[in-house]
């Protein structure tokens, strides 16, 4: 049971993490499991843009759009696309079971 998510690293390697309890952030999961490029320097405070990902098209609606604060921080990051998110702001819930994101190029 639990939630399953997949990160596609910049080098193409896919990392799937299973059995995640609801409530954890996607950044914490990525950082804890050593996903390359998910640094989360600010600890999830939406202040550093070091957990930038692209949400797969199939999941965009459910993952949601960034709010104003996240949009401001995202603007500091390179290569921002319409499906960009800071994954510290994606809190995992059952609805996101299967979520798939690609890690954006780092600074």
């Amino acid at each position: 049971m639990g939630i399953k998510v997949t990160f596609v690293q910049a080098d193409g390697v896919e990392k799937t993490i299973e059995n995640i309890a609801p409530g954890e952030s996607m950044m914490e999961i990525g950082r804890f499991n050593g996903v390359e490029g998910i640094l989360g320097d600010c600890g999830g405070s939406c202040a550093c843009a070091t957990c930038h990902v692209y949400v797969d098209a199939a999941w965009e609606a459910r993952a949601g759009k960034p709010d104003d604060v996240e949009t401001s921080t995202l603007d500091m990051a390179p290569d921002v696309l319409p499906n960009s998110r800071l994954c510290c702001q994606i809190r995992l819930r059952d609805e996101l079971d299967g979520l798939r994101v690609t890690v954006a190029p780092s600074f």
Binding site: G43, G44, S45, C46, A47, V69, S72, T73
Partner: peptide, 15 residues
């Protein structure tokens, strides 16, 4: 101890 301070200064709280 870092975590404690991170929670106090999130971008959302500062906004």
């Amino acid at each position: 101890v870092r975590r404690l301070l991170e929670n106090a200064f999130t971008a959302h709280r500062v906004a």
